[in-house]
């Protein structure tokens, strides 16, 4: 069987033998700075990676994989900004949002389990019980999906990424525009990820291809803002301006 066919079968979740092999499981790509934070150089299939502190960090984490054909679902985050996701490099045509994943724990669990069956990445922002979180992590492991609990306590996560501080550039007193920000991200975890790591990330960065290996801090220079200064709309009606 050709290599690509084997990869396809793995993607399908076929073959219990695959779980027993010692070969490193396939990792989904992430942008360079984040790859350095993860012990596998990417999001290992079957792992649970908690994200805290920044929606943009969550979206940036999912970006590279969706660009390479993976599907991502964001559960329980009704205010997730799809436009920001697109700007951070997420292929939004492969992004599904499930804002209300159910009325009770049972429904939430069923919904997330169903999504883990078909999606490569599932972000979950709905709090669940410890028992449910264990079941869902196990499901992700079994289905070779990556579970990303966002801003919810998750006892069994392999790695926890926390955005600790943010510095904005571009905005001044009364003029300018938000252009980019520097986010400090800390990683803590179990096993290979026990040693805490830290990196800085410039968002929105250039959507570069992931590169292997640990990236030392500080990180890349801020990318130029993609847009010209804001054009201001002229008054489109002839009405006298009044206070708004």
């Amino acid at each position: 069987m050709s290599r690509s066919a084997t990869a396809t079968l793995t993607a399908l979740g076929v073959g219990a033998a695959g779980e027993l092999t010692t070969a490193p499981a396939q990792a989904l790509p992430v942008r360079g700075e984040l790859a350095g934070l993860l012990p596998w150089g990417g999001l290992r299939r079957g792992s649970t990676v908690s994200v805290r502190g920044s929606t943009s960090l969550l979206l940036a984490l999912m970006a590279a994989a969706t660009g390479e054909g993976c599907w991502a679902a964001v559960v329980g985050l009704p205010r997730c900004g799809a436009l920001a996701a697109a700007e951070l490099g997420v292929a939004v045509h492969r992004l599904a949002l499930v804002p209300e994943p159910g009325r009770d724990q049972g429904e939430v669990e069923k919904t997330v389990a169903a999504l883990l069956d078909g999606f490569d990445l599932v972000a979950l922002a709905t709090p669940v019980t410890a028992a449910t979180s264990r079941k869902l992590s196990a499901r992700a492991r079994h289905r070779k999906a990556v579970l990303l609990p966002f801003a919810v306590p998750w006892p069994g996560s392999d790695v926890e990424l926390t955005a600790t501080s943010t510095r904005w550039t571009g905005l001044h007193t009364g003029h300018g525009l938000l252009t980019s920000r520097t986010v400090t991200v800390e990683a803590t975890g179990r096993g290979a990820a026990t040693r805490p790591r830290r990196t800085t990330l410039v968002l929105p960065g250039d959507n570069e291809t992931p590169r292997p290996g640990l990236v030392s801090l500080p990180s890349t220079t801020p990318s130029p803002p993609g847009n010209s200064p804001l054009p201001v709309a002229g008054p489109s009606s002839s009405a006298t301006p009044r206070a708004v």
Binding site: A86, R94, V98, E100, T111, F119
Partner: peptide, 24 residues
């Protein structure tokens, strides 16, 4: 991948109703 995702989305729609799964 698209087909697997589609199946999962239809599954969730079956659980929660057709408007529960949104794509931007």
């Amino acid at each position: 991948a698209a087909e697997r995702a589609a199946r999962a989305m239809v599954h969730v729609q079956g659980l929660l109703g057709p408007d529960a799964v949104l794509t931007p």
